[in-house]
Write a protein that binds this DNA or RNA. Structure first.
Length: 913
RNA sequence: GGGCGUAUAGCUCAGCGGGAGAGCACUUCGUUGACAUCGAAGGGGUCACUGGUUCAAUCCCAGUUACGCCCACCA
């Protein structure tokens, strides 16, 4: 059945995908050669309930290209798919869903009941993203799909926890952590985003205890010296967070600060509470900032906590988990003071309401010194979007610094390489300054920490409760309620998915994977942590190359986000333009930049490219070009065929070279150019007269070559455009293998290409282009066949003309080309390498237009010749430049001069106006 | 406050120490039996600015400007 006029991607994509699936074409090791090296990529697991966004589409297209390329090359290839349970994100979605459905909130149901809801949601939506990845053409081994909450994976997570605990690399401690008051959980440093907030800075007066006073400088002269002094009975502190003053346990000044040093050791009476707190000296207090005196709230500020630890200040927590003020019944708070009623009325207020209340009271009571507008960065939870609270709680931590060392070393030594190199710097910078990693989360959805406590609070860390019990004797145990940071489990992805801790064949075979393809936004979250965990648990790096790619942005360069409403849905685009077009677009934009901007116009362009390819194949089919498994590119006779075979080999080499260096866009550009500009624009056109000509042998050879050339286009394009190529591959012939498993070619241009054929075809193409250009500029009707002859022609030119006569006639739309002794009147001469042609335009030629045309060319040549001459006349150039550069300049000069001479004779022939 | 990145055609972007490129857009022409999701021919750029290195700089170096990103303890 002949091919249809266009590629019907809507129906074909599903059919092709079905065939791959039925053939289990993507399973690990498919198409592997005997004893082949392995090639393994771990998918960055998308959130299980997520939807495919452009970033996924991009990321997975690049992985799929690498995977398909290696699979075709006979590697034992595994692309391991899976999904992440995404603790906070998923819990958030389900909680919102419960609210939308009018169901009881999480806290109104039991943990088990809530988790059941999450699993229900997972079952309902968990397959979505897999299907979307399949739509994209992702050739993962879907039968091996893993989920980070699979029982086996869960087991692996617990084992790693226990292992690290036993190595002393996991510990529990009461520390200040970033607390998300919305989700009521600790989060890690990385999950905190600094957001610029327009706020205020309040100056508060804390009266000195025992009626003490001191002399404080006022004003300043030009040299910054105080212009006077006043007697003060209070210290002024500045803060953006007045509500935390309820938890103040001191005031810090710099030990060398002349203004305050004599006050160190004295105390202030904290307003609202009557608590007497010391003035301490600490270098943290910066005399240049604020008033130089800093209120200390060790339980609600990271710096204050450190200062407090150094100077012996108490910690007083004055908030609950939702960041509402906690005063009533708060023993820490009430210890040492008896706050008045109006202070206790702050109890239960949200921190922001409390802030207002405290400021109002300060004003009423006369200890508000002043207010300034202030823009500052406030840390927010990246998921909840609310300001996080430094909060003092018991949490589990990983000693990240210890794990970081070998992870740094592995990249330094080159065992793992990061591309592009600048991302190595980010990796090092982060790991070298790493802080303890808070891994416990006060959530329900996740891997519950494998720790049990007895009634004395003694810790039993074990993989199973039974094990913990036996270690505890008969004592009753209670399990730690917290779950682990999602990234803790993602960090185990490269070995957890391969069956660890079982010593599976897959683990032995594929661990120490080849490439990790990821965006730079999760280098710290994920890449660095996989390195740490992989090396610690497996004794071997999880991957040998990290390819860091750009982020996808909208056409204006903005990060795509739902809140901005600028999200381009890849599935919608696939529906509209086809998966291949979307893939090709993403591939062609994959240069190692920082971000890439996507517009639909570009996708449409690559959809057209698919159509072009389709029609080239259709042309081949219509002309009886049948793929011949025995085709040998080395025994061709017709120069045209010898040439295109060499071009194909060069394209193959360029594609391989580009992919080997992750230069995806180069590979795409090479193929685009090869298929469209070389095969379609020239080879197909040249073949037409041959198919219709009398030389049956040449026609047959061209048919066979054409079939081969198209096949090679399909093969080479397959990693980028798998659907259309697979479809055509099947449509064009009965084949032993599907394209997805066809062996990647290895022909080299050195053996296949033929210099003489290349030169000849370049000459023919040049001639045709010149004739077309002349015709167009002189406004010769496009349909007119113009007489053409040659005035002089060297041996090579005569051969080229003879061998390609019909092709030249057709593409240049000229008549029989024969020898002429002189240019007839009204003829336009066309200089070529080794000869001169003339187009006999006669009455068709517009003399004025021709003069303009020629003088334009002449100017260009004059400029070039002048430039090269002056360069060659420069002695310092000839003395210093490498020989090949000088030779090149001479050659260019000669060529330009020759062209100019021919042009001049053409100009001379034009009748004077 | 620190660090990094980017400035090349109208737009989106490649490129790179010795002849400025692509796609889209634009102009003109075209019912050429693969394709109008097409074909042919064109126009369009002091490669951000200033200085330096070099025989030679869009490319390397320094600085400037603009935009963007990341990190940082909210006085």
């Amino acid at each position: 059945m002949p091919l249809s006029k266009n590629f019907d991607f809507r129906s074909c994509e599903f059919a092709v995908a079905k065939r791959w699936e039925c053939a289990r074409a993507f399973r690990a090791g498919a198409n592997a050669l005997e004893g082949a090296d392995t090639y393994c990529i771990m998918i960055p697991p998308p959130n299980v309930t997520g939807n495919l966004h452009m970033g996924h589409a991009f990321n997975n297209t690049l992985q799929d290209i690498l995977v398909r390329w290696h699979r075709m090359r006979g590697f034992d290839t595994l692309w391991q798919p899976g999904q992440d349970h995404a603790g906070i994100a998923t819990q958030m979605v389900v909680e919102r869903k419960l609210a939308d459905d009018g169901l009881p909130a999480r806290r109104e149901m039991s943990r088990d009941a809530f988790l059941e809801k999450v699993w229900e949601w997972k079952e309902e939506s968990g397959g979505t993203i897999i299907n979307q990845l399949k739509r994209l053409g992702a050739s993962c081994d879907w039968e091996r799909n893993r989920f980070t909450m699979d029982p086996e994976f869960h087991d692996a997570v617990l084992r790693v926890f226990v292992s690290l605990y036993r190595q002393g690399l996991i510990y529990r401690g009461k520390r200040l952590v970033n607390w998300d008051p919305h989700f009521e959980t600790a989060i890690s440093d990385l999950e905190v985003q600094q957001v610029e907030v327009r706020g205020r800075m309040w100056r508060l007066r804390y009266p000195l205890a025992d009626g003490a006073t001191y002399s404080h400088p006022t004003g300043a002269d030009a040299d910054g010296r105080p212009s006077g002094f006043e007697t003060r009975a209070y210290l002024v502190v500045a803060t953006t967070r007045p509500e935390t003053m309820l938890g103040d346990t001191g005031v810090a000044v710099h030990p060398d600060d002349e203004r305050y040093r004599h006050l160190v050791g004295k105390s202030v009476v904290l307003p609202l509470t009557g608590r007497v707190v010391p003035i301490v000296a600490d270098e943290y207090a910066d005399p240049e900032k604020g008033t130089g005196a800093v209120k200390m709230t060790p339980a609600h500020d990271f710096n204050d906590f450190d200062v407090g630890a150094r100077t012996g200040l108490r910690t007083i927590n004055v908030m609950d988990g939702r960041a509402a003020m906690l005063l009533e019944g708060n023993a820490e708070f009430l210890d040492g003071c008896a706050p008045p009623e109006e202070t206790m009325a702050i109890h239960g207020l949200d921190r922001f309401e409390a802030r207002e209340r405290v400021v109002n009271l300060a004003e009423e009571q006369g200890w508000l010194d002043g207010v300034d507008e202030d823009v500052h960065m406030v840390p927010h939870g990246d998921r909840s979007g609310v300001a996080v609270e430094p909060y003092l709680t018991d949490q589990w931590f990983v000693d990240a610094a210890a794990l970081a060392e070998p992870a740094i070393e592995a990249v330094r030594s080159g065992e793992t390489r990061i591309h592009p190199e600048r991302d190595e710097k980010h990796y090092f910078r982060w790991l070298e300054n790493i802080e303890p990693w808070c891994i416990s989360r006060q959530l329900w959805w996740g891997h519950q920490i494998p720790v049990w406590y007895d009634e004395d609070g003694k810790v039993y860390c074990a993989v199973t409760e039974a094990e913990a019990r036996s270690a505890a004797g008969d004592k009753p145990l209670v399990r730690d309620e917290d779950v682990l940071d999602t990234w803790f489990s993602s960090a185990l992805w490269p070995f957890g998915t391969l069956g660890w801790p079982e010593r599976t064949p897959e683990l032995a075979r594929y661990y120490g994977t080849d490439v990790l393809v990821t965006g730079f936004d999760i280098i710290f979250f994920w890449v660095a942590r996989m390195m740490m965990m992989g090396i610690n648990q497996m004794g071997e790096v999880p991957f040998h190359t990290v390819y860091v790619h750009a982020l996808v942005r909208d056409a204006k360069g903005k990060k795509m986000s739902k809140s901005l409403g600028n999200v381009l849905d890849p599935i919608g685009l696939i529906d509209e333009y086809g998966a291949d077009a979307v893939r090709f677009t993403l591939t062609s934009m994959a240069a190692m930049g920082r971000d890439l901007k996507l517009s639909t116009g570009r996708i449409a362009g690559y959809r057209n490219f698919g159509t072009k390819l389709w029609n080239a194949a259709r042309f081949a089919e219509m002309n009886g070009c049948r793929p011949d498994p025995g085709f040998d590119p080395l025994v061709l006779r017709v120069p045209l065929n010898r040439w295109i075979v060499g071009e194909t080999a060069r394209a193959r080499e360029a594609v391989d070279a580009a992919l080997a260096e992750f230069r995806f866009n180069d590979a795409a550009a090479v193929l685009y150019n090869h298929v469209w500009a070389r095969v379609c624009d020239w080879y197909v056109e040249f073949s037409k007269p041959l198919f219709q000509g009398v030389d049956a042998a040449a026609a047959d050879e061209t048919r066979a070559t054409m079939a081969w050339v198209i096949d090679q286009c399909l093969v080479l394009l397959h990693p980028i455009m798998p659907f259309i190529t697979e479809q055509l591959w099947g449509d064009l012939a009965e084949r032993r293998k599907m394209l997805v498993h066809v062996d990647w070619p290895d022909y080299a241009s050195a053996e296949v290409a033929d210099d003489a054929a290349d030169r000849m075809m370049a000459w023919v193409i040049g001639l045709v282009e010149q004739v077309r250009s002349v015709r167009s500029e002189l406004r010769v009707p496009a349909g007119a066949t113009v007489p053409m002859s040659w005035l002089e022609l060297d041996r090579a030119g005569l051969d080229a003309l003879a061998d390609n006569h019909a092709m030249i006639r057709r593409l240049a739309r000229v008549g029989e080309v024969s020898r002429a002794d002189h240019a007839p009147d009204g003829a336009v001469t066309i200089p070529v390498d080794g000869g001169v042609f003339c187009l006999e335009l006669a009455e068709l030629v517009d003399v004025t237009a021709e003069r303009v045309r020629l003088s334009k060319v002449r100017h260009r040549l004059d400029d070039e010749i002048t430039k090269i001459r002056s360069r060659l006349a420069n002695e310092r150039f000839t003395a210093n430049a490498p020989e090949h550069v000088i030779d090149e300049q001479h050659a260019r000069l000669e060529a330009a001069a020759g062209e100019l001479a021919k042009l001049q004779s053409a100009i001379d022939r034009i009748p004077a106006a």
